[in-house]
Simulated assay, not measured.
Amino acid sequence: MCGIVGYIGNKKASGILLNGLSALEYRGYDSAGIALLNDRIEVIKVKGKVADLVSACLSAGSELNGTIGIGHTRWATHGKPSKENAHPHATKDFAIVHNGIIENFKEIDDFLIKEGYKKSSTTDTETILLLVDYYSKTLSTFEALKKAVSVLKGSFAIALIHLNEEKIYATKKESPLLIGLKNDELFLASDLSAFLEHTKRFVVLEENDIAILEKNGTFEIYNDGNKVERLVKSVDWNLQTAQKGGYKHFMIKEISEEDEALANTIYAHMQSDKIELDIDEDLLKNVKKITIVACGTSYYAGLTSKYFFENLLSIPVIVEIASEFRYSKPIFSDNSIFIAISQSGETADTKESLNLAKELGIKTISIVNVQESTIARLSDYVLYTL
């Protein structure tokens, strides 16, 4: 899932943002970037790892002196992994980062095109940016952001900066966003791990909050046009505890987030209120047998899906452990499909099982977390989980 960081204070922001993004790497991502406020908005972003972004920032050198900035690690939903689609997105006056999925971005794009706007990416995030820019022609930045998010359908956490304002604007709906507090400095992040080395005091933004973070360490939060107060909290966590979100271990965290992960995965394939999969429709309509192969907890996910497929489709579903399947002589009938499940997309036994199915001429689908992983590349079709 995507990760957001932000900093406003009296220190050089670039290092703080990069360290924050490093702490969010565990969430998974395919690209990363930062935007800093100087005499212009300086954006540096890469397709690849935070380490690649660090190298790009080192090359930029003295240009990165701003004390206000936002950053992002992106896991592609709308738009392929690329430098152009990486966040932040920027105009001359604004820069934005976004976590979530905007369901009606194409309709908004159509409106913006009629108003003379042209996108440089294929993301829903740039749609938000241009919509804010459009409304800012007649409204303040705060009111423009408020107006823009009222139009959005879907989930979002947003951080926004303006060239001529020493502020960070932030808002959220169904995606987490926290403000870290430390004297005359403020931090912004998707979770505590991004700013835990600096402060353990924070505020959790609630649904439809819009926050304005000031350079003197003060902030205001509004909801439905009214100024509101949110409880200042504190934790006694280390980085690993924060990454686990307060859960005892990662396993229970993943179990608790199943509904969110499923919803995000489905939203990524929503087109005009319908689920659109980039898989041959005739293949799906004519399938007579499904073989699912995986290891570990992915295997148990396959066992669970077996009951859904068989009840809904009335066709046989075989679920096999990859370490056994790869050494077997599987029997596939006509119109069979093979589904490989792997969180990393690199599970060795699952990969070899996939190769075996391909050697036998069976169409393959993979369900993985990681873009451009080996299993994703080998498969005929791939569905990414979020």
Rank of each mutant, 00 (worst) to 15 (best):
Q271M: 11
P330Q: 00
T385M: 12
S155K: 14
I252K: 01
K45I: 02
G225P: 11
T350S: 07
L131R: 00
D184V: 11
N264E: 14
T364N: 12
V319Q: 04
K306I: 04
A294M: 01
K83I: 14
S342I: 03
H162I: 07
E320T: 01
S59A: 15
F105T: 00
L360W: 07
N286G: 11
Y307K: 11
I337G: 00
A60Q: 14
H98R: 09
E126F: 06
E63C: 05
T241C: 10
V319Y: 00
G15E: 12
P330K: 02
N38E: 14
E281H: 11
L312E: 14
I113G: 04
V97Q: 07
G9F: 05
E281P: 05
R230S: 06
N226L: 12
A294R: 03
N264I: 06
S22G: 10
V151F: 12
M270F: 11
L130N: 06
K172Q: 14
L383V: 15
F111D: 09
V5W: 05
S155H: 14
D224T: 14
I255Q: 01
K45Y: 07
D52N: 14
D209W: 01
G61D: 13
T304G: 08
I318Q: 02
T127F: 07
D39Y: 13
K80A: 13
G66L: 04
A86V: 04
T91K: 00
G180F: 05
A242G: 13
S55D: 13
I337P: 01
I41L: 13
G69Y: 08
E42Q: 06
F156W: 15
F325T: 01
I16L: 12
E220S: 12
I367N: 04
A144H: 06
A144G: 11
G180T: 02
I128L: 12
